[in-house]
């Protein structure tokens, strides 16, 4: 695992660091691949039964529903849908006071952690995403596009999804500056992430007012929107605009909260 994608902007080199750090734990990665594949199998059979009973639910046919399942499993780790990315470390560093060490560094914390998380995401897409996805595509009927342009649009959508995911987790993690312990935050992140991202059921299939709400929340930008872009279920420009708007808004909010958190440390002490 000596490969170092030098593609991450922000803090140069930090992304490579993030990639390498996660690449250190190979057994954990193998276990993750196995888990995602097993969960994919469980969900696929559930979905097949569901779409058998309710054909066209959420605007998907059976093949699209199956594709959605494997896509969700492939992106689960990369987008840190239930947490488990940089924010675990950030919260721990705040709790233990190690965060002071970070303040000695001549870098912007938000860019720093973003670069870190991007390195992690690239590793987890390759290390944990590809195998379950190929498995699903091989053994189940899927609805994958043939045109490269759609895949390219999906790639952009994925990058935006990661930015939104990062921004959400950054905000959750910063709350520890006031709460001083990350356990509850981690659990809140997990529940909201899994439910509102559409890990259990596509957001398109959520009924009534609940569906209307979850589809405009930022979590929709994580999984639902890229899936719809890949399967041609949404207009690409609208999808990008939705994701970008949330990314910009949440990253900007993150900056505000970050300066408040830093001020709190700087004025009140560790």
């Amino acid at each position: 695992m000596a490969a170092r994608p030098g593609l991450v902007a922000g803090v140069p080199g930090r992304g490579g660091g993030g990639f390498r750090r996660y690449a250190t734990y190979r057994v954990a990665t193998a276990a993750g691949v196995f888990t995602n594949t097993v969960f994919g199998l469980i969900l696929v059979y559930t979905y097949l039964a569901l779409w058998e009973a309710r054909p066209g639910l959420g605007g998907y046919d059976q093949a699209q529903a199956v594709t959605y399942v494997w896509l969700a499993q492939a992106l689960f780790a990369m987008l840190a849908v239930q947490g488990g990315g940089f924010e675990v470390e950030l919260m721990e560093r705040v709790r233990t006071g190690e965060i002071a060490v970070d303040l000695y560094r001549p870098v912007d914390p938000q860019l720093w952690w973003l670069a870190n998380d991007m390195g992690r995401a690239v590793f987890q897409l390759l290390g944990r995403g590809v195998v379950p996805f190929l498995f699903g595509a091989l053994f189940f009927p899927t609805a994958l596009p043939g045109e490269p342009a759609v895949w390219a649009a999906f790639g952009v959508s994925l990058l935006l999804a990661l930015l939104v995911s990062f921004a959400i987790r950054y905000l959750f993690a910063l709350s520890v500056f006031w709460l001083l312990d990350g356990q509850g935050v981690g659990q809140a992140l997990m529940v909201t992430g899994v439910f509102c991202s559409g890990m259990t059921l596509p957001l398109n299939a959520f009924p009534g007012a609940l569906g209307d709400v979850v589809r405009v929340l930022p979590w929709a930008a994580q999984l639902q929107v890229p899936a719809d872009v890949l399967m041609g279920e949404t207009a690409v420009s609208g999808a990008f605009a939705f994701q970008a708007a949330w990314a910009v808004a949440l990253l900007a909010l993150g900056r505000l909260v970050q300066s408040a958190a830093t001020r709190r440390v700087v004025v009140q002490g560790g």
């Binding site: 390498r20 750090r21 250190t24 734990y25 006071g97 060490v101 000695y104 560094r105």
Partner: peptide, 8 residues
């Protein structure tokens, strides 16, 4: 405390 990366 350390400024080094624990797992690298």
């Amino acid at each position: 405390r350390t400024t080094l990366w624990w797992d690298l």
